[in-house]
């Protein structure tokens, strides 16, 4: 259970001359929860967007299961089993919960019944709201839907961009419970968070990003007790 499935080498992302990610390297092992934490503008989201193929990196390489996916388009990347839960949930507001889930499985052509049952068992709330338009759900439910939708593609690696954004503390705890549950079911997770405390408690490995570079790295527990991290991100 310790083989590397995602490997990032010297990744650089720039937007019209402004370099948001300035050469970062890290590995994600099979069955791990890895978290990237850092302040706004540290390059966390850009890293995920580059892995998902939504932006083309300006340098470096990304490989998944040993194969290079640096220049692949998003369709190809989702097909290989890497799915992004985008920042700010971005569910399809006018479509029903069920339609949202079906779009998550767009690239699959087999029977979806078992998977729909599976995500509904993970999120019983969504089952109750199956025929409601996504936009009528509460913020927490929308986040659940965003995660459920991503799970419908049967990803090997699910990447979450700030799943706790704008949610009440009790809901955030629920979301992290779900993240652990998904992890238990064998999905590798790459998590981006500003809520460093929750993220590091959940993660096996953590990386601290500072203005486009990796400042610190270690296991979740190590980083939690690191004085620099405490001062900068945990507020103590």
């Amino acid at each position: 259970m310790s083989d590397v499935i995602l490997s990032i080498k010297d990744l650089k992302v720039s937007y019209g001359g402004i370099e948001a990610v300035k050469g970062i390297s890290f590995d994600v092992k099979q069955g791990e929860i890895v978290t990237l934490i850092g302040a706004n503008g540290a390059g966390k989201s850009s890293t995920l967007r580059a892995i998902a193929g939504l932006v083309k990196p300006s340098g470096g390489s990304i490989s998944f299961e040993g194969e290079d996916i640096t220049a692949a388009d998003p369709t190809e990347i989702v097909k290989r089993g890497v799915t992004l839960v985008p920042e700010g949930r971005r569910i399809f507001a006018d479509l029903t919960v069920l339609e949202n889930l079906k779009i998550g499985a767009y690239l699959r052509h087999d029977d979806l019944k078992d998977d729909i049952e599976w995500v509904y068992s993970l999120f019983p709330r969504l089952k109750e709201r199956s025929w409601q338009p996504g936009g009528t759900l509460s913020g927490g439910e929308q986040q659940m839907l965003a995660v459920a939708r991503a799970l419908m593609s049967r990803p090997k690696l699910i990447m979450m961009d700030e799943p706790s954004l704008g949610l009440a503390p009790i809901i955030v705890r629920g979301i992290f419970d779900i993240i652990r549950e998904i992890h238990r079911q064998g999905v590798t997770i790459l998590l981006i968070e500003q809520n460093a405390n929750m993220a590091l408690q959940t993660a096996d490995t953590g990386y601290v990003l500072e203005t486009g570079r990796i400042g610190l790295s270690g296991t979740g527990a190590e980083l939690l007790s690191n004085e620099d991290v405490k001062r900068a991100y945990l507020g103590s």
Partner: peptide, 11 residues
Amino acid sequence: EDEVAAEAMGI
């Protein structure tokens, strides 16, 4: 509904 989300779903 949302081009970015659609693209992230592999469309």
